[in-house]
Design a protein around this nucleic acid. Structure first.
Lengths: 222, 222, 222, 222
DNA sequence: AATGAATGAGGCTTCATTCAT
DNA sequence: GATGAATGAAGCCTCATTCAT
C-alpha cells in the first residue's frame, strides 16, 4: 500500500527485456535484504549492506524502494503471503477439520524448520524493528491465529471437539509453536526441529479436547 | 562494590509527595530507563531521554552506569528476579503439584496484566535490543520454561498427570502465555487481560493431560 | 582498491583560479587536515574543523577516510614519502659519499625551512597524537636515521671518513637537525632557518671525522 | 606563577602535623600524576586516573591543583629543576671546561637512563600535551641548550676548542642526545642506554673541534 | 536505471570541572 | 580537607536519504 515506487510502472513501459531485468534486480534486492535482515537484524542492517549483498549501489536500492522500512514491510508481507499460500494448499488437501488444523500447524512448522532465516525474519526481527512495525507484526500474528481459529471453529461445528474459546486457542497455539521455534533459533535446541512436532501436536490437540484416540490416529502424513 | 548506593534515608524528608523523589538517583535512572525502554524500545531510546526522564544529565547517568547496554541488562536481570521471586512465593503456598503449576502461571500472568511495561520490556524489547541481547533473552525464556517444566515433573512424579515431555511442554506453555500477553500488549485485546486466564489455564492443563474434573476443581484464587 | 579517486580532469575546467579547487575532494580533505593538524595539533583538531576547512561535511570526510587516525597516518606516510623521494633525487646527483650525506641533510633541512607545517606535522604532532602513533613516528625517525647511516657507511667504505658507529651517528645527526628545526618552529629562532645550515653542516661533518679541508670544500650547492 | 592554589597558605595555619600531611598529599598527587602522564601521555590521562593513583578522590586533587594543566606545569618545572640541580652539582666537581661539558651531558644522559619515565614526561609528553605547552617545552629545551652553550663558551674562552657557534652547538648537542634517548624510549634500542654514551660523547666533542687526544683522554668518571 | 559522493542529524561516550555535604 | 555525585560541552562516528551525473 503505497509501498511500491516508480519501479513497477516505469519499468513496464519499455520492452519486456528491460522490465524483466528490472524485476530481477528488484528481487535481488529483496533477497539480499531478506538474508541480511535475518542475519543481522533490522536495526543493525545498513542500506550499504543490502546494496552490497544485492551487488548494486545504494542508489540502485533507492530506485526500487523508497525507504528501508518499505523494504522490510514488503518482505514481511510477501513472506507471510507465501507461507499462507503454502498452508492453504496443505489444508485444501484435507477434509477432516482436525486434520486441517493439524496440516496448517505442520506446514508452518515444517516451513520454519526448513528456513531458519524466514522464521528469524518473521518472529525475531519483526519485533526488533521497533514500534514502527507493531502493526505489521500484529497483522502477521493475527493472521495466523485467526487461521487456526477458523479450523477450530469448523471442528467445533462438526462436533469433532467440544466448544471452546477458539480465538484464544488460536492465539495460544500460535504462541506455543512460535516459542518452540524461537527456542530452536536462539538456543539451537533441539538440533532437528522436525522431531519436536509430533509431541507438540499431541499437546496442542489435547488442549483443544481432541480425544486421545484421534490424536494418536491422525497420521504423520505429508 | 559500589553497586548499591546509600539507603535513601535523608531523601525521605519531604514526606513522600511522590515516591519517585524519595528514591536514590540510581533507582530514579533505572525507573526512567525502564519506562522509556518500554515506551519507545531499546534502540529508539536515547540516553538523553533517559537522562531527561530521570531528571539528571547525561553525564549523571554515566556516573551510575557504564553504558546503555548495562542499564538494559540490569533492568532485565532485576525485573526477572523480582518476577521469579514473586512466582516462588506464590508456588510455596501450594502443595499440590498441579496447583503449583497453576500458581506459577497465574502469577506471571497476573503480574504482566498489572505491569504492561514490564511485559513489554521483558518480551518485546529484549528482541528489539538486537542480537547482542539474545543471550539474555534466551536465559530469561529458558528460566521460565524450566520453572514450569519443574512443576510438571513433580506432577508426573506424583502421578497427577501422565508422563510427557515436560521440557517441551514448559516451552509451549510459556509461549502460549507469552503470545496471549503480547496480543494484549500490541492489539489491546482483550481489554482486561485477567479474564483470559481461566480459559487459558484450562487449555494448558488439558494439554498436559490433567483430568477435566481437576481442571474445573482447582481453585479460583486471586 | 578505492584508495585513489578519479584523476581530476573535469575538475580543471575553471582554468585554475585556485589550485585548491582543482583537486579531488580526497586531496582537499588531506590538505585541510594537514593544515589543521599542523596548526592545532592532532588531538585538538576536531573532525568538524577538518570538514569545514575542506569545505565539506563531516560525513563527506568519513566517506573518504574511515577514521581520524586514518587521515593522520595517510598524511604521515605521504609526507614522509614525498620528502624521502626529494632526498633521493638530491642524493642521486652526487657521487662523493660525503657530498651525498651532505645533500641528504641539506634537502631535509631546506624542505623543512620551506614548509614549517610539514615539519610541524612530522615532528611535533606525531608525538601529540599520542602513544597510538609511536609506531609511525618511530618508523619515520628510523627511516631518516637509517638513510643517513647508509651514506655514512658508504663514506667509511670508501675511506672518506674513519670507521665509526654509523647507526648512532645517523640517529644523532637526525636529532641535531630535528632540534634545530624544532627550535626554529617553536621559538622562531633563527629568523631564517637556511642560514643555520652551513655551521650545522660543519658541526655534523666534523663529528664524523671529516677532515677540516673537506668540510670547507664541499660545495654550497642547492 | 598563579599555579599554586590555597594549598600552601591555608595548610600552614594549622599545626605542623596537618601541614605535613597536606604537603605529603600534594606530593602523592604529583607522584601519581608523574607516573600516569609518563605512562599514558598527557591527553590520555584522566583526572580520575591521577586521583586513583594518588589514592584520593578527584575532589581531593582539585583541592591541591586548580587544573590538570597546573599539575603538568608544576611537574615540568620541578622535574627540570631537579635535573638542572643534579647537573650543576656534577659540573661543579670539574674544573676543565671540556670536562664540565662532558659532565653535564653525562649527567643528563645517566639520569634519563635511570628514569625512563622522567625522559618520557619531559621529551615526549611535553609535545604531546599540545600547543598549550609550547612555552614550557620551549623553556625546557632552551634551558639545557643554553647550559651546554655556556660550558662551550668557557671552553672557547680558555682556548680548549676553536671558536664556533656555541648557541647552535648547544642546540644540536641537546637534539642529538634527545634523539638517542627517544630512540631508546620508543624502539627500545639499545637495550642499555648507558653504553651508548661513550661513542655519543666522542661524536659530540669531535663536532666541537676537541682534539682526538682529549676525547680519548677524558675519563669515564663518576 | 544506476552510481557513489555528499549531507547532516543524531547517537553514545568521555572528561575536566564544580559543588553540596 | 576530602568526597564523589553531577554537569554539560565536545568528540568521534553511523547511516538513512538525496542528488548530480
Amino acid at each position: 500500500m503505497g509501498d511500491e515506487k516508480r519501479g513497477g510502472a516505469q519499468a513496464e513501459k519499455r520492452g519486456g527485456a528491460r522490465a524483466e531485468k528490472s524485476r530481477t534486480r528488484r528481487e535481488q534486492i529483496l533477497d539480499a535484504a531478506f538474508n541480511t535482515f535475518a542475519r543481522r537484524g533490522y536495526r543493525d542492517t545498513a542500506m550499504d549492506e543490502i546494496a552490497a549483498a544485492a551487488e548494486t549501489s545504494k542508489g540502485g536500492v533507492y530506485f526500487h524502494f523508497a525507504t528501508k522500512e518499505a523494504i522490510f514491510r514488503e518482505l514481511m508481507r510477501s513472506t507471510a503471503d507465501r507461507l499462507a499460500a503454502k498452508v492453504d494448499r496443505a489444508v485444501a488437501a484435507e477434509t477432516d477439520p482436525i486434520a486441517k488444523a493439524d496440516a496448517a500447524l505442520r506446514t508452518v512448522f515444517a516451513t520454519f524448520a526448513g528456513h531458519r532465516t524466514m522464521a528469524r525474519l518473521l518472529f525475531l526481527d519483526a519485533l526488533g524493528a521497533g514500534r514502527a512495525f507493531n502493526d505489521e507484526t500484529n497483522a502477521l500474528h493475527e493472521r495466523f491465529a485467526r487461521m487456526i481459529a477458523g479450523y477450530l471453529d469448523e471442528a467445533v461445528a462438526e462436533g469433532a471437539i467440544p466448544p471452546l474459546d477458539t480465538r484464544l486457542t488460536g492465539v495460544a497455539w500460535f504462541g506455543a509453536l512460535n516459542e518452540v521455534v524461537a527456542r530452536w533459533l536462539m538456543a539451537g535446541e533441539p538440533a532437528r526441529l522436525e522431531e519436536t512436532y509430533p509431541p507438540l501436536r499431541a499437546l496442542l490437540l489435547r488442549s483443544a479436547g481432541v480425544p486421545e484416540a484421534r490424536i494418536a490416529a491422525t497420521g504423520p502424513a505429508r
